[in-house]
Design a protein around this nucleic acid. Structure first.
Lengths: 339, 339
DNA sequence: TTGTAGGCGTTATCAA
DNA sequence: TTGATAACGCCTACAA
C-alpha cells in the first residue's frame, strides 16, 4: 500500500492540512514545521496521488493527443514538438491513434473526457460538423493541429500550415522554372486539408498561369510510397504526352513516383522534375536529393501545444487560426526546363 | 459542471449504488430499473469520472510508455504495436520521451507513478542497476522493450530481439557470401543492447571464422544518417585496404555510409557490400534496395504490451526474457564476392 | 433486489 | 499559523 499524506502527517506530528500546505505552498507554514514535514516527505519518497488531486482540483495535467497514425514520421515530428512544450510546462501527453476514422475519433474524444484530460490536441483527416460539434461539447478545450476543420472557421482554435498556398508555391516554383506541363500526384480525396486543399493550390497556380490541365494529369491515392509509385505509373501509361514536372502531395508519394520513373528509364530531373511535400529527414538521403516544400511539423506541434496551454490556463478564450510558414526547398529533383 | 452519478440516480429515482451496478454489471438489478437507468444515462451522455473510479479501484487503465525519441521511426513502429493491443484491451497509453537520459528516465518513472499508471513499458538505452532498482520499487509492473537490462537478467520482464545473434547472422551472411574484410559501422558505445550487443555479434562471427579485425575497421557513433556518412568516411580515409563489406548498426547508418561511398565513386554493391539493421519502410525506397536485418518492431510492441497486461491483471508473476525473431533480408546492397 | 454509508487520497473552507 | 472537516465522484460492503 502506497504511503499517503496522512502517514506523513502522523509521522511529522502535524495535521494533514499542514502537509498539504508545505507541498503546495498554498498558505504560510512556520519554517520549523515546514522543515520537519519536508524531511519526512523526502525520507519516505512521498508523492501525492494525482488522482485524488485531480478529483478535487479538476486538473490532471494530462493533454490528449489524437493523431491518425503513430508511426507516420509527420506525426512523429508533430508529437515530438507537442511533447516538448508539454513536458516543459508540466503536462504529460496521452497519445491516441485514430486511424483517421471518424468513429474512432469520436470515441477517443469521449475517452479523453473520461480521463479528465485538461485539453486535447487533435490532428484529424476530415474534421466535419459532427466532429466539431462533439469537440465543442467537451469539458476540455481542443486545438486542431496540422489540419483545419472543414466547416466554419475559427470555431475551434487551429494551428496549421497553409496547404493551399504551399502547393501553390510549389507549382509556381515549377512554372517559374519554365515548366508548363505539370501533373499532380496527391493524397486521398476525402482528406480535407492535405488532400483537397493541396490539390486546390495546384489548380490555382496553373489557372493563374492560364494553363489548362487534362484530367489525366491528376492522380490521387494514399500518402504512401506505394501509392506514389502506382500513381506515377498511371500517369505514365495514360498520357501520350508526358508532363515535364510533377507536384507530389507528399515526400513519400514523390519518392514512389521517382522510383517508378527510374524503373522505366525516365530520368529525374533531366526529363521530369518532381517536387515533394513535408521535407522528411529522408529527403536528403536520396540521390538526387528531393526538392520539396518544407513544413515545420515540430514547430507546428510546439505552437499548437502553447496555444492549447493558453486555453487551459484561461489566458485565452477566442479561437483563431494560426499558420506556420512553409518553405520551398530546392534540391536535386527539380531543374529549369530548357526551352 | 459535469453530470455525476448522483444526478443520474436522482433523475431515475434510484440510489447511487443501483446506477453504479447497472454501469458495471457488478450485481443483479431488476430489468425494469436497469432499463430506466440506462435511458437516463444515455439521455445525459453520462460518463463516469475515471479519476474517482481509479481512486477507489486502484486502476486507471493507463499504460505508460517511455521511449528515447518519439520521432524515431523505430520507436514509432514499436509504439504503434503497443498502442494496438492496449487499445484493444481498454488501455490508453501515456507516451513519455526520455531523450535516452537517465535523469529524465528516473523522473518519468516517478511521474507515471503519480498518475497511478497501471503499468509501464520501458524502452531504455542503458538500463543499469540504478534504473532497475527504481523500477522494482514502483507500484506498477514494468516490462522492458527493445532493450534488455545491463544488469542481472530476468529481474524485470523483457521483450526484445536478439541483438547479438542478429548482427552475428548479418555478419555470417556476408561471410558466407565470400567476404573476409568486413567492417562495422555501429551506434553509441554506451548503448547497451543496440550499441554493445550488436558490436559483440559482429565480433563473434568474425572470431568464429578465424578472422582478425583491425581496430580501424570498427567505427561507432550515433544511430543517424549523418553519423553513418562520417563513419564511412573515416573508414575510407583511414584504411589503405578497404573492406569488401560493411555491417551497419542501423539502416540509417547504412544509408549514410552508402551515400558517402557514392560520393567518392565507390560502387555499392559492386565494390563494397553493405547490410543495415531494422528494416525501416524506407529500405525499399532506395536504389539499390537496402539489404538489412529485419526487426519486427510492431510485433515486438504488441508482444510487450500483451506481456505487461498479464502482469497487470495478475495472471503472471515471474519475469522472463522473450525474443522476437529477426530475419536477414537480402536485397540489392549486398552481393557475393567473386573470388 | 435495493439502499445506506463508509472510504479512496487530496484540497479547501472555516474555525480556532 | 494550525487543525478539523467537508467536499470531489465513485465503488462496495453491509443492511434491509
Amino acid at each position: 500500500m502506497a504511503i499517503t499524506i496522512a502517514d506523513i502527517a502522523r509521522e511529522a506530528g502535524v495535521s494533514i492540512s499542514t502537509v498539504s500546505r508545505v507541498m503546495n505552498n498554498t498558505k504560510p507554514v512556520s519554517p520549523e514545521l515546514r522543515e520537519r514535514v519536508y524531511e519526512i516527505i523526502e525520507k519516505n519518497h512521498f508523492k501525492p496521488n494525482a488522482l485524488a488531486q485531480g478529483l478535487i482540483t479538476k486538473k490532471t495535467n494530462i493533454v490528449g493527443v489524437v493523431i491518425p497514425d503513430i508511426s507516420n514520421p509527420v506525426f512523429g515530428a508533430l508529437t515530438k514538438g507537442i511533447n516538448s512544450v508539454c513536458t516543459k510546462k508540466g503536462y504529460t501527453i496521452m497519445v491516441c491513434e485514430s486511424g483517421g476514422e471518424q468513429e474512432q475519433e469520436m470515441k477517443l474524444l469521449d475517452v479523453l473526457e473520461d480521463k479528465q484530460t485538461d485539453g486535447v490536441l487533435f490532428a484529424g483527416v476530415d474534421i466535419n460538423q459532427v466532429l466539431v460539434d462533439a469537440m465543442l461539447k467537451k469539458q476540455y478545450p481542443v486545438v486542431l493541429v496540422t489540419q483545419e476543420s472543414a466547416v466554419e472557421e475559427n470555431v475551434i482554435d487551429t494551428v496549421t500550415h497553409d496547404n493551399v498556398r504551399a502547393v501553390y508555391d510549389a507549382t509556381k516554383f515549377l512554372l517559374d522554372n519554365g515548366h508548363e506541363r505539370i501533373a499532380y500526384l496527391g493524397g486521398p480525396k476525402h482528406d480535407f486539408s492535405s488532400g483537397k486543399k493541396r490539390l486546390k493550390g495546384y489548380r490555382m497556380a496553373l489557372e493563374e498561369a492560364g494553363i489548362t490541365v487534362p484530367d489525366s494529369y491528376i492522380e490521387q491515392g494514399e500518402f504512401s510510397f506505394q501509392s506514389g509509385y502506382e500513381g506515377m505509373k498511371r500517369l505514365y501509361e495514360e498520357n501520350s504526352i508526358l508532363p515535364t514536372a510533377v507536384v507530389a502531395g507528399s515526400d513519400l508519394i514523390a519518392i514512389g513516383g521517382i522510383q517508378f520513373l527510374n524503373s522505366v528509364g525516365v530520368s529525374v530531373p533531366d526529363e521530369i522534375s518532381i517536387i515533394g511535400f513535408d521535407d522528411l529527414d529522408f529527403a536528403t538521403c536520396l540521390r538526387p536529393e528531393l526538392s520539396t516544400v518544407r513544413i515545420p511539423y515540430f514547430a507546428e506541434g510546439e505552437k499548437a501545444a502553447k496555444e492549447l496551454i493558453k486555453f487551459m490556463t484561461g489566458s485565452k478564450e477566442k479561437a483563431a487560426t494560426h499558420y506556420v510558414p512553409h518553405k520551398i526547398i530546392r534540391r536535386g529533383t527539380t531543374r529549369a526546363k530548357s526551352k
